[in-house]
């Protein structure tokens, strides 16, 4: 009885996970044209409140490692490797912001230090468990973009 429930729950999870991913554009299918990505990677709008959390989370975007952001003054340490992101939505369209987060190298050139968060064009000797995986999921990218759009 217990076992059946577990199996059932697992099956639900699988269905849940695959149906979400089926909607996502795979990293190879993403097209960057004129420094912009026109369509949402998930087909949906991101959630800015979730994006705000992913932005600061060291295991996800960790964007604060390199970018200062006045809107997040509750966090003590802001990096300086990239430009401050205050008012970034006035400098770029949402479609351009999506392209920057997905694959900054396609926008700023191959020399940029900023990682591509939804790109498989990565460095050598990638950690084995991360091979073929992107730093962020499509949903995480969309939510971070939705958050960036609020930085006016």
């Amino acid at each position: 009885m217990f076992l059946t429930r577990v199996v059932f729950a697992a099956a639900l999870l699988l269905v849940g996970a695959s149906s979400v991913q089926a909607m996502d554009l795979s990293p190879d299918a993403v097209k960057i044209e004129d420094d912009a990505i026109e369509v949402s990677l998930t087909g949906k709008e991101g959630d800015p409140a979730a994006g705000r959390k992913y932005f600061a989370n060291r295991k996800l975007g960790n964007c604060l490692a390199c970018h200062a952001n006045k809107e997040m003054s509750e966090h003590l340490f802001h990096g300086e490797v990239g430009p401050p992101l205050d008012g970034v939505a006035e400098r770029y369209t949402p479609e351009e912001l999506r392209a920057i987060v997905v694959n900054s190298k396609a926008v700023f050139g191959p020399e940029t230090v900023m990682p591509g968060f939804y790109s498989l064009d990565v460095g050598k000797d990638v950690r084995k468990d991360l091979v073929g995986k992107t730093i962020l999921t499509a949903e995480e990218v969309e939510s971070i973009v939705a958050y960036l759009v609020t930085l006016k």
């Binding site: 060291r58 490692a65 340490f77 730093i135």
Partner: peptide
């Protein structure tokens, strides 16, 4: 100068191009 890993960074990314700057703390 070889970029490694999922974050795609080399020693130079941090210590040549960005020394003097903070990376988080």
């Amino acid at each position: 100068y070889t970029r490694t890993g999922q974050l795609n960074l080399s020693c130079a990314s941090c210590h040549e191009l960005n020394n003097g700057k903070y990376i988080r703390a």
